[in-house]
């Protein structure tokens, strides 16, 4: 790897760290209802939304009400996106006269965007009208991210608060243990965090050449005519356009990942320059990293947030190293053909198959690890063409449960579930009362945290097993041997952890995969958010015990190491056998 390669990774991580505290502090103010510099501009809009929707913003909700509101809102959004796709041929803003999306693909896509996964079984430019992209997909990019943020903030309140009665009149089903108001958290997430950041990023992306237009596609003459497979001379090309920049900004910031165009951020109209690449990569991890600081501020001890961020970063860094090393080392099959894979001033070297020459090895591998660490799923290179160990790094980051930064909100609440496990196990081992931030961790919290960790594992492994043993599943696998298994495992790891990226070699736009992956995405999103909110409700009812001699400190390097061990051991135990049959054996076969 070149010096510039190391410098690029270092610059990226440095910028991310520098932005963590200011954004994290700002988000803490937003969620604690404090004044921000956007108050004068956005407060009237916020009040209007509450009045228009009938939301009683001053009321606290107990966890059941909060979870029910989340489910109802998401179900309605999902059905709207489904309807938009099925009716797009008769709706406006469809200059290319695209037909209605098939029912199974419409279901898969609606689920995908409502669950913040953004798995795409379609090509955007040939399938989705502008109306569907904007009113359906982009809107879901905002509200699905805001849903994740809301669930996290509710959990943090459960950890931070002392028991207090709900406001009068109480919400149905509870008299104490309020964890906030879902409608307020959703609205403030969108208005104060996602919209302003997306606006700034979209402008920056447009300045770099990302397209933003309602105009129809353009047909242009090729500078150099080519001959196609039928010996016909091709002199023209149709360039797909559309309102891309506005969708790409939130696709990255909201850890959504769904590309406007089929090739996602490898497309020159989505990601034209090295600067746009850096900005988009930063946007992927920005909010998930900053939320760690937000968490620390909200619980009154920023050291707790830094400790969690440190644990995430320590897992992330080696995965970046592994992916970059694997790709930069090149492909032995190319070496046998005499291809020069040495890095030099004239070429990036390494395994450049499936990568954009304007990004090279480092920015492709760094993006692949960031996007899979963050449950984002956007790509600027084709992961299917990565070396086996490069693909393994991306796949394993998803399989850890998307807790290494993870999705906006969902990443940190997943990591806090691991923290609960870590605290409980450590407490048992040393004979201390398991507690976190002064709240006792008891059997109920352990059961819920176990659900959060085990459900995605179950979904991924069972889904993969069913796919490879059924004709409907195996018919989509074009690569024989371990790489074919890797493709199926990657697909279910992606859907079962709400990531959305793909090993593109699998034909996933079939009724089997559209339905199976759709179900995986639904379970992975909502059947994790519900136990998380249940933990929040349970903790909110508990008194905070003052720290004493028997308290396990959870901000120390020792606890960070322990937390990493718990995350890695669970991830390794659950997925090592499957990985051994896929990327690991493929790596060994390549070297044989």
């Amino acid at each position: 790897m070149t010096t510039f390669g190391w410098l690029q990774i270092g610059l990226y991580l440095l910028l991310l760290l520098l932005l963590t505290k200011p954004l994290g502090a700002y988000m803490a103010r937003v969620y604690q209802g404090e004044r921000t510099f956007l108050e004068a501009l956005l407060r009237p809009m916020e009040q209007f939304i509450y009045r228009a929707s009938g939301a009683r913003a001053q009321d606290e909700m107990d966890w059941k009400t909060y979870a029910t509101a989340m489910l109802v809102f998401n179900a309605l959004g999902l059905l709207v996106v489904y309807a938009l796709q099925r009716l797009q041929d008769v709706l406006p803003l469809n200059p290319q006269d695209l037909s209605a999306v098939s029912p199974d693909l419409a279901f898969n896509t609606a689920v995908s965007f409502a669950t913040n996964t953004n798995w795409q079984g379609y090509s955007g430019e040939t399938t989705m009208s502008y109306l569907t992209q904007m009113l359906g997909l982009t809107v879901q990019n905002f509200v699905s991210a805001a849903t994740g943020l809301a669930a996290l903030v509710a959990l943090v309140r459960g950890l931070a608060r002392r028991p207090a009665p709900l406001s009068s009149p109480p919400q149905a089903g509870g008299t104490e243990g309020g964890i906030g108001n879902f409608w307020v958290d959703l609205t403030r997430s969108v208005l104060y965090i996602l919209l302003p950041l997306s606006f700034l990023l979209a402008l920056a992306l447009v300045s770099q050449g990302v397209v933003q237009t309602f105009g129809s596609y353009r047909t242009v003459s090729l500078l150099q005519p080519i001959t196609d497979a039928n010996d016909q001379t091709v002199t023209q090309q149709t360039l797909a356009l559309g309102p891309a920049a506005s969708q790409i900004a939130i696709k990255q910031l909201g850890t959504n990942g769904g590309g406007f165009f089929s090739t996602n951020s490898a497309h020159p109209f989505e990601n034209p320059t090295p600067l746009s690449n850096l900005l988009e990569m930063l946007a992927i991890l920005l909010i998930p990293a900053a939320l760690c600081y937000t968490f620390g501020r909200m619980v009154g001890d920023t050291r707790q947030g830094w400790a969690v961020l440190a644990a995430m970063s320590i897992v992330f860094a080696p995965m970046v190293g592994l992916a970059v090393w694997a790709e930069q080392s090149g492909n032995p099959a190319f070496a046998r053909l005499g291809v020069d894979q040495t890095a030099s001033d004239l070429q990036a070297g390494g395994n450049m198959e499936g990568k954009e020459v304007r990004f090279g090895i480092v920015n492709s591998a760094l993006w692949a690890t960031a996007t899979t660490a963050a449950s984002n799923g956007s790509v600027n290179a084709m992961h299917d063409s990565f070396m086996p160990l490069g693909g393994l790094a991306a796949m394993w980051l998803m399989q850890l449960g998307e807790v290494v930064y993870g999705g906006v909100g969902s990443g940190l609440y997943g990591m806090l579930a691991f923290v609960i496990i870590a605290v409980f196990v450590a407490g048992l081992m040393v004979g201390r009362t398991p507690e976190y931030l002064g709240k006792k961790i008891e059997a109920f919290e352990m059961k819920m945290a176990s659900l959060v960790i085990l459900i995605p594992v179950l979904v991924v492994l069972v889904g993969t097993a069913v796919a490879v043993v059924t004709p409907a599943g195996s018919a989509s696998v074009f690569n024989p041997g371990p790489h074919g298994l890797s493709e199926v495992l990657y697909a279910f790891s992606s859907a079962g952890n709400n990531n959305g990226s793909a090993f593109a070699g699998l034909n996933a736009n079939t009724p089997f995969y559209n339905v199976a992956l759709g179900l995986a995405m639904l379970i992975a999103r909502y059947w994790l958010a519900i136990p998380v909110l249940a933990i929040a409700g349970s903790l909110a009812r508990k008194n905070k015990a003052p720290a004493g001699a028997g308290t396990l400190p959870t901000h120390t390097p020792l606890f960070v190491v322990w937390l990493i061990a718990v995350v890695v051991i669970v991830g390794a135990l659950a997925f090592l056998p499957a990985l051994a049959l896929g990327p690991l054996v493929e790596h060994l076969m390549l070297g044989a």
Partner: peptide
Amino acid sequence: MHDLVFVVFVLVFFAVSLGLIAVCQRLMEG
């Protein structure tokens, strides 16, 4: 017909999810 199948599928999933809330609440209450 397909539309009905998928819409019902989604509604059933969310109904089961509401049931999961109730199960979690019962577990919480011991």
